[in-house]
Amino acid sequence: MQNSIKKTNTIKILCLVALAILSIAGFLFYNIQGNFSYAFPKRVYRVAAMIITAIAIAYATVMFQTVTRNRILTPSMIGVDSMYEVVQTVIYFFLGSASVFVVDRYLNFGTSIVAMVLFALLLYRFLFRADKYPIFLLLLAGMIIGTLLGSLVSFLQVMIDPVEYLSLQNKLFASFTNVKSELVGISAVILIACFIYGAFLMRDLDVMNLGRDNAINLGVNYDKLVLRVLILASILIATSTALVGPITFLGLIVSNLAYQFLVTYRHSILILGASLISIIALVGGQFLVLHVFNLNTTISVIINFVGGIYFIYLLLKQSKGVAG
């Protein structure tokens, strides 16, 4: 019985791989016009950015949901990625665009990540530690904090020098049509580093499925693991936000689809599956939007729309006590 589940999981993963490759190939080669040596590298950069984003969000969300023991909240939904905007705005507001924190790309990125990690830790201490708050309360708190951060950002932006503001806006308005290609290289490096580091945490995460007490009983250093996962998830979310801007609901969709699609507690498989689904959703979705439906919109809009509905569905399911 276990073997047959393992076998079907392998088949499912292979199907996902095939679909992902198909999406990527379609996106790269479909209807490529004009100067190939000009158009093709541009597409490669875009698709690379999408793949990095897709994997980063899937990876961060699955890990985050395991340590917080919930399947509805994601780092994006509690405002970890709004923290990126806050940091950038605060830097521009107080230090200006000529400051070393802006000019030095790595310092800028590093500062954002540190702030996001601290923010995630703070939220974790207050929201998740108590373990008893119902999910609705967490959501409400997350929304309020998100709104608060948003207001703070707009407040500071109104007071910023208009020239500085333009430069800030350019930095913040990353999207799929305006990918920060100069960040693709470093993002790929960060993602790979996270993967290597995260590989050591996979088994401990599997044990976390048994709950905090059983995990500690089995020798998992619980507090350390939570800290590591929160840091890792923050770095991943920061990377994807810097690259293509926030996509609030992608993580929620792909993690939950992976939980439903793959019957397993193993994080190596869940994260692989969620990452593939994520790539299919982003790259394949963008391909469909552009070439099949001929819509002049980006996939993130559609994902947030579909994700919002899916989110409500999950909430209703949970409130009926059927949630798995």
Binding site: Q2, R71, V207, N209, N214, N217, G219
Partner: peptide
């Protein structure tokens, strides 16, 4: 030292054997 708490809640699907296998995790 092993401890079993009064109540245990697990939010993933596991078989008995998989659960017992976790006992070997240390």
């Amino acid at each position: 030292v092993a401890i079993l708490r009064q109540s245990n809640f697990i939010n993933v699907r596991l078989t008995i054997r998989e659960l017992v296998s976790f006992g070997r995790y240390p």
